[in-house]
Design a protein around this nucleic acid. Structure first.
Lengths: 156, 156
DNA sequence: GTCAGTGCAAACTTTTTGCAACTAC
DNA sequence: GTAGTTGCAAAAAGTTTGCACTGAC
């Protein structure tokens, strides 16, 4: 699905979500959705605020960003990650499921795809629990830091 | 391994860790380790602070708790989780690997064991990355909230 | 004796909240 | 017109930092 199409589709999904939950369709909300779906990869509220402050049409307050992102998560259009210090978010419609490798040394986050893992998790039977989505964070040391560590050891 | 034995073992591991990294073996650090290994399940800094404030021997500052927990994570005796608002921690030595079911409605966290899943993740080959541990968070709706939701829908 | 570690309080960051003004319905 | 939303600023919550004092080595 090409980008323009995705944006239209999520706008439609969000509209339906807002209507069926008795929320208002404010221009702020759609501007936020649009901006989020222009971002590739993770973002946090501060980055989103910065992006929208510089934007042609819209400037929204942080409070509105926090409010709206809750709605977007509820509408399953955004998911929230917790690594590092602040909450990180990510668009979730039309996005391939992926897992996260997090370096405990430098904090870098890398996304990986792994079909077998994906299947194993998706097919897990859970008692009395209706899964909606999941996050797998794999911690360890990235190649870069591994080299650095080895070099340091050798020099001792 | 029984509890007393575990405590002794982790004290030994921590001692070695501190020595080989040129850190001092302060009584605060061992008191914190001991307290943590008396807790079953998750805890946050505030809870740990509360527990130690009421304790016979030791009262430590929050700053020291934050400092020490970093050492304990580095020594692989504690792992950090990020759900809800604040960082949650958990002892990690001699603990069965488990996964977390998180209810997006009420925020309740439940631990589950699943051998197949465990194997699938442990056997995953990762390029240029040395895995040390991982966290799997499965989001969804718990049975309790599912009932509540159904009831609400029916009443409409 | 020295310097890493501790406690305390202040600072900082991120998120939440209260309230007046606004606007989608 | 009314109630849901917004922006702003203040407050709250969690974590980090600076500094004087302490105690492990």
């Amino acid at each position: 699905m090409e980008n323009k199409n995705v944006k239209e589709t999520v706008r439609k999904i969000f509209t339906e979500y807002l209507e069926s939950n008795g929320h208002r369709k404010t221009p702020e909300r759609f501007a936020i959705l649009d901006t989020i779906y222009s971002i590739n990869g993770h973002f946090d509220i501060d980055m989103l605020y910065g992006l929208m402050a510089n934007q042609e049409n819209f400037r929204v307050s942080r409070a509105t960003l926090y409010n709206t992102i809750i709605l977007l998560m509820d509408a399953k259009l955004v998911i929230k990650h917790l690594f590092g210090n602040s909450s990180q978010y990510e668009k979730s419609f039309n996005i391939e499921t992926h897992h996260h490798l997090i370096c405990t040394q430098c904090g870098k986050v890398k996304e990986v795809q792994n079909e077998e893992l994906k299947d194993a998790i998706a097919n897990t039977r859970l008692n009395r629990f209706q899964m909606s989505h999941y996050s797998l964070y794999i911690y360890g040391i990235c190649s870069r830091c591994l080299w650095a560590k080895r070099r340091k050891k050798t020099n001792k």
